[in-house]
Design a protein around this nucleic acid. Sequence first.
RNA 1: GGCUGAGUGGCAGAGUGGUCAUGCAGCAGCCUGCAAAGCUGUGGACGUCGGUUCGAUUCCGGCCUCAGCCUCCA
Length: 463
Amino acid sequence: MLQIHNSLTNRKELFQPIVSGEIRLYVCGMTVYDYCHIGHARVMVVFDLVVRYLRHLGFKVIYVRNITDIDDKIIHRAAQNGETIGALTQRFTSAMQEDALALGVLPPDQEPRATDSIPLIQSMIEKLITSGYAYQAPNGDVYYDVSRFTHYGRLSGKQIADLRAGARVEVMEAKDDPLDFVLWKTAKPEEPAWDSPWGAGRPGWHIECSAMSTAALGNHFDIHGGGADLQFPHHENEIAQSEAATGEPFVNVWMHNGFVRVDDEKMSKSLGNFFTVREVLKHYSAEVLRFFIVASQYRSPLQYSNQNLDAARAALTRLYTALHGIPRAAPQASDFTTRFQAAMDDDFNTPEALAVCFDLAREINRARNEDAHHAAVLAGELRYLGGLLGLLQGDPDQFLHSTGTLSVGSALRDEDIETAIADRKAARKAKDFAASDRIRDELKRQGVVLEDRPGGTTTWRRE
RNA sequence: GGCUGAGUGGCAGAGUGGUCAUGCAGCAGCCUGCAAAGCUGUGGACGUCGGUUCGAUUCCGGCCUCAGCCUCCA
């Protein structure tokens, strides 16, 4: 029985879909004005694996992840670069999709863009004004009246009074209350704008997610996810807007993933301590990066460091070594699958699920010389379970022959290695172990490790 | 100041009221020409002070430390 930690109640809860057998899921995606960093990668990987697992359980999942392609930062960055907003957002949307693909993140079922959703957004704002939840200020901006929404603060565990007391919100004359947030921003000259009943302008950030999610998934849907930094105010505001506009409950389960940290601090643009996905992929393979993310539970902080990526690579090498040299056989669900599912059912406990994979790998290693068929079936199971995490789908030989950490400099070509191995084989046959060891040492020096197998064959891997 | 969350062996990282996490690293044995890989065995931990309990790393309370949110942020 699947349990998910719900940020709304701050507890693990038994998951019950609204419509039996079907799950509607919305995740806040990227604002496309720069390359994705590892924090963005984590959101994509985490919810990808949530979707994969839910589908494995037999649910029909409708997964929507939006693209924010209009906001202040985009406008500023485009101006800075001297390019159009459309060119900028198109460029970084493509970059984001490339990064996702590299990380083995399956595309969402729908990927709506804010700028394609203006009519939806306007109609929601219209409803909020009509029902008295929003007002147009003298400066033309339209604001949401937070005091009208009685449940405001429920998701983030905040009291309106406390928020006011500790308000660090910029004082804006136009607002009735500093906590009110903007739904429609009047355009300044030079800024992109859409016509509206409230004058030319553009949507505020929060409203787009309310409009796009309810349009795609209905007024009331199952799961809404995103990074923990979106819990307040973004998600809080989404609830306020959506529930006020539709008169229905918005979302049953809120999921928030933890931050990626660098030196015990949150990785973020403002701190400048971020690593982009494409930067990291120059040094580590995408599967290693993905393993690194999966090796922590999604709500825990994730400590980014080369040391931890190296550890991820070593661990992944062990799994691929177990699969190496074993023919593919159809998987059978055994006790390992039961344990794996129990782990995943417990709020997607991927570290525990990986532990099961390692136990399975040991079992394969035990069986491989005793009972080849059994080993093959277990290997099939390991591959299947790994697939639920988006791992272990590659060819073991290929993984072991690649460095995993993509080393720079003069790497030996595969053919050179094969030639050296043939030379060494001849030397061994002639019992010239000094020559044999010389070849092995030289390869080792260049980062290639040899492994002599029973039967006289030699396999190799890069370290 | 308000509100969250966290402190586990050399490192990473799960979990549990009393018997094994898991991976890397260490040690010993088997295997090997020697290695590597693998297998077997093994040492090593639960921030701190109290409380509850036959028994707490696990429950409760205080304290210390760290991170996050309260402003754009995945």
